[in-house]
Nucleic acid binder design. Structure first.
Lengths: 275, 275
DNA sequence: CTAATAGTGTCTATTAGACAGTATGTT
DNA sequence: AACATACTGTCTAATAGACACTATTAG
């Protein structure tokens, strides 16, 4: 069939020539948690944590998974991600970026569903007691080598262990092909989303100011350093950290008194001037 | 409706509860081009280039666009991208990575189509004269500041100018919200895909060995440096470049004699040992 | 010889790593 | 006083930037 104009073509277009498919959005929400130490002198230990929800419907009923939902036919993907974040945390205007699109034809037992994952960073102080009932924060601990990544999730009651296999796709890049070795009971391919998000976060914390989305307005350099340390999975030297961070933060006249040691000056995030 | 098991749920699942949508893959294929200089002494100038195809059907009939196509209902997304690359260039086993998923509900005039973009890097020597008829390589020149990115595409006959607006989404990251200011006649939202691809390439060339996917087996350090320079959009100092690149390449006993100047030693890519 | 690219030596500036030292609060 | 964290000074190592210099070829 031949048409003479774009308009004529569009009038006659049959949108069902190809079998359509369903799409969802999954959101990986990162934040920072404190864990009080028994020693009055010690600072509370910092973790980074992610938000999981317990499914109350099939498929994967009673399994933990990332907050997600179907994308409406007329809904922009970013908007769908924002809608889901809002549903779970009651927050809008939160930092969010697209992570990766997962499209294995067998990733959902119901039918072909392609999922676009997003990652988002929140300051937990902004949402205390606003979580929906079936949601819970899980502290994240991870270890990785060049073969696999082990992720331990813990919400105080339950512990989930994920093992993700890494196979270098190509020797010229940093791209790994991830595979789920142990899903710890997590639904869908969400272990892959979590692994991808941790990698992205770990990478971006080095060359962006992304971390400040997880920090409260006022924070000490010690706290900030701890957050860097848990995300990077290694200890940093104080003087080096302070040198590098110096032009991103601004000293305030407030201090934080936390116990049997010298009080700490509170800082705020200082945006770099537009370059 | 309540079910007692996952199996029972799946047997009764109606996959048409949500209105489904269509998905496509678009592939951004990068390579390197030479342009002979008239002065016999001078080296041929290097560009990086992308492959465009001319549409022979509506919508956007006779406009240039990126190679793309619909994702089959049972087809993995990566496989769809490989299939399209193969169709256009007759090549398989080529470096390829997912770029970004574009889902503006209005991005296609026909209906709701979400597109997953891929970027791919090829050594043009591997595919001379294998291109499909409606495909053409366009040299890329680009300039950017913090407000916008201007991209000039040229295939020797036609010149296409793209202008993409950049708005910082968030002051804590490197994430820009891109918008098309000038599409130069390019179909769909493909100017956005190209801008995203150039940014990714520019970024990754600094911390991966991705560039060697575009290089022939044997190359001179001068050629390699030129490729770095056109992608990064700036000149590099010879000694510094050679220092940094030294552990990624291996000297061979071959030389390249190109004209009225000292011949150049040919190198090959040397993979780093697994770390 | 000349113009052009190939390739190296070396000084300097900047940044990162290491470690020791001082400061200051609570119990 | 003791302990834990806060914060700084300074030496050294590694890396990046700059520039001058030598080498080698076709015409």
């Amino acid at each position: 069939m031949k048409y003479n104009s774009e308009e004529e073509f569009l009038r006659n277009y049959n949108s069902d020539d190809f079998k359509k498919l369903s799409m969802t959005v999954d959101t990986l929400i990162f934040s920072v948690s404190d864990e009080k130490q028994d020693n009055y002198r010690k600072l509370s230990k910092k973790y980074f944590s992610i938000l999981l929800v317990k499914r109350d419907d099939y498929p994967f009923r009673d399994k933990w998974c990332l907050p997600g939902g179907f994308i409406g036919y007329d809904e922009d993907i970013d908007d769908a991600a924002k809608r889901i974040l809002k549903t779970e945390t009651n927050l809008s205007n939160i930092y969010m970026e697209q992570l990766y699109t997962f499209g294995d034809p067998k990733r959902d037992p119901r039918m072909r569903i392609v999922s676009v994952s997003y990652m988002s960073l929140v300051d937990k102080n902004r949402l205390r007691d606003k979580l929906s009932d079936n949601a819970s924060w899980f502290n994240v601990n991870y270890f990785e080598d060049d073969k696999k990544m082990t992720i331990l999730l813990d919400n105080g009651e339950e512990s989930i262990k994920l093992v993700i296999g890494k196979k270098l796709k190509d020797l010229t890049t940093d791209r790994y092909k991830y595979s789920v070795i142990e899903d710890g009971g997590l639904a869908f391919d969400h272990p892959l989303v979590i692994a991808a998000g941790i990698s992205r976060l770990k990478n971006k914390i080095e060359y962006t100011d992304i971390v400040f989305n997880m920090m409260p307005k006022y924070f000490t350099l010690g706290e900030l350093q701890q957050v860097y340390e848990v995300i990077l999975g290694k200890e940093l030297l104080d003087p080096a950290f302070r040198r590098v961070i110096a032009n991103k933060v601004e000293k305030t006249d407030k201090v934080e008194v936390t116990g049997g040691h010298r009080p700490s000056i509170l800082y705020t995030y200082k945006q770099k001037k537009s370059n």
